[in-house]
Structure formats: structure tokens, C-alpha cells
Simulated assay, not measured.
Amino acid sequence: MARLSGYLSRRGGLHPEEASALRQATSRLFNGQNKAETCRWVNAQGYRTTLGNEWTPEVLVRVLSHPRMAGLDDEGNPVEDFGPTVLTPDEYFRLQALFVEQKSQQPQAREAFDYLLTHGGAECGKCKYDMVGTRVSGDADPSYRCPPPRAGQASCGRVRMNADRLEDTVAEAVLAELMRPGAQEHLARLLADMRAEAKRLEEHIAGAVRRFEELRGMRDALVPAAYAAAEKATKDDLRESRNRLRFLEQMIDLPIDGVASLVEWWNSAPRASQRALVRLEIAKVRVLAAGRGKLRDPRERVLIDWRRPPA
């Protein structure tokens, strides 16, 4: 178990440099500096955690909330013969009260947003880098953005679009595409193929127990490396089959008997099912820059590469 920052060991003994850094960080917190700013200062001075990592607000609070910072036990009582401490008991209790107060002032955490087009579904129209889901601030609406450039990452960071504008535009386009002549017949054939594939996968997954038993029966006849490779391949096959079946199950109940039923399905479908339909119809969504506000209609900023049925 790693030692506590500020001490030479878990039994005490001050680490002078680390203790000084933690005391200065505490003073900054008492003087109104927030935890993120305090961590930036600590890191800029070259101080690191006992694991050699940069300080983060979460780690700083966890370390400074440890009762050993003031030579106390878990009940808040002084540890006998502990020796010099990073903080005095008064400083420690004042700091805990400050953390409690700050936590009560934080806005309630917002529910995580389930993005429709992340993980390769949408790309930046300028640099073709995959867009990511993000919020500009804690209380901002979800949005898509091209991530800022950094070493080894050729993104431009210049394109952003609110999630509702992008996703509503794509959903309307997908539903309209499914209404064009011949599209529903093509989708019906795809769904029939998917149902047949799902049935085969269910049978294949059900037979996994037998395959593993047969493999274990061959264990003595195989060298250890060959057995390990065969076991891994069998597990990988089972995992991939289950993942593929989950994808198919999200699609095989899709209604194709008209616009109203399709729209009703979309409005109540789980996000995974909506995502599966979009990926079935669309190869890539490209998001253009706003052009200094010239492209106000979100449809002008969205280019869609469709998965056209073979001629």
C-alpha cells in the first residue's frame, strides 16, 4: 500500500518537501483559491503524488481529508507518539468543514447524455477527425465537437454543434430516406436476413457449453500454449457472437409498414436501437463549420454518406 503523501511512511515521519507543498495548498484553499487552481499551482512547482502522478482536485481532497494529516486516528483522536504532522488538528477540521461547504454549493450533477453519433458516427468536416460528445460547461447543453489538437492527434478543434440540432437533423434524414421508393423493401430483406442470423447466433451461443467441454477434454493432448490459444479463441468467439446478437436484437422488431409506425418506433425506441438503425443506413455524418453564422439551418451543416443498397 502506498505511503501517505507528506510522510516518509504510514507510521509517520515528515517528508519535508511534500509536507510544505500540502501546507501551502491548504493555505491557498483557505484564501479562496479553488481546488483546480490549487492543483495547477502544486503541479507547476514540480510536486507529484506518491505514485508520481500530477495532482487532481479529487486526489488533493482525498489526501487532505486523511486524519493522519493531523496525526489523528479514524475517530478523530490523536495518535500516540505520532510525531510532527502536516497540519494541525485545527487546520484539519477547518479544512474538512470547507470541503463540506463547497460540496453543498456544487450544482447537482447532470445526468449523462447518451450520444447518438459518437464512436465514429460523426466526423469533423474540416479535418475529418471523429467528433466527440461534450459540454462546454457543467450547465451547458450536450454538443458534439472536434477535439482540440495535441501531440499525435491531427484534429483541428474548430467545429462544434449542439447535440439536439445535429441528432434531430440526422434522425429526420434517416426516416425520410426509409420512406423513399424501394427503401422499405430493401430494409425488409435486411431485417429478414438479420432475423435468420440472430437465430443462428442463438444456437451457436447455446452450444458454447459443449464446445468448452470438448476443449477441456483435449487439454491433456495439447501443449499448454496451444490449449491457451484455443481457449482464448473460443472465448473471443463467444463474446463477439453475443455482441453481434445484441446488435441484431435492437433491430429485428423495427416496423416497416409506414411513416407513422416508424416515427412512433423512433420516438420510443431505446438509444441503442436508434443508434443501430442510423449505423445501418449511414456510413458517416460530416459536420461543417458554422461559417461565422452564415449556415444557420443545421441541415446546411450536415453532409451524410449513405450506405446505398447494391444496384
Rank of each mutant, 00 (worst) to 15 (best):
Y7D: 06
S9C: 12
R10K: 13
L14M: 06
E17K: 00
E17G: 00
A19N: 00
S20I: 01
A21E: 07
R23T: 07
Q24T: 09
T26K: 02
R28D: 05
R28N: 04
L29D: 01
Q33K: 11
N34M: 11
T38N: 01
C39V: 05
T50Y: 04
G52M: 10
L60H: 03
H66D: 15
P67T: 13
R68I: 09
M69G: 04
L72S: 09
D73I: 14
D74A: 14
E75C: 11
E75I: 10
D81R: 08
F82V: 05
V86Y: 00
L87M: 01
L87T: 04
T88H: 00
P89A: 02
P89D: 05
D90P: 00
R94S: 13
Q96T: 14
Q96P: 09
L98M: 10
F99R: 01
S104V: 13
R110D: 12
A112Q: 12
F113H: 14
L116K: 02
T118V: 15
H119A: 11
E123Y: 05
C124W: 03
M131R: 01
T134Q: 00
V136D: 00
S137H: 11
G138N: 11
A140D: 13
A140R: 06
S143E: 12
C146G: 00
G157D: 12
M161E: 08
N162D: 11
D164Q: 10
D168T: 14
D168Y: 05
E172M: 07
L178D: 00
M179L: 13
G182F: 14
A183K: 03
Q184W: 07
R189D: 10
L190C: 08
L190Y: 02
L190V: 12
L191S: 07
A192K: 15
M194Y: 15
R195L: 12
R195M: 13
E202D: 01
E203D: 00
A208T: 14
V209I: 13
L215S: 08
R219W: 08
A221Q: 15
Y227L: 04
A229V: 10
E231L: 14
K232V: 11
K235C: 02
D237I: 03
E240I: 09
R244A: 04
R244V: 05
M251N: 04
M251S: 10
M251C: 09
D253H: 14
A260H: 14
A260V: 15
V263I: 14
A269H: 06
S273P: 08
Q274A: 07
Q274S: 07
L277R: 04
R279M: 03
R279N: 03
L280Q: 07
L280K: 02
E281S: 03
I282V: 14
A283V: 06
K284L: 10
V287H: 01
V287M: 01
V287D: 01
A289E: 07
A290T: 11
R292S: 07
R296W: 10
D297T: 11
R301D: 11
V302N: 04
I304Y: 01
I304P: 02
W306K: 02
W306S: 04
P310N: 14
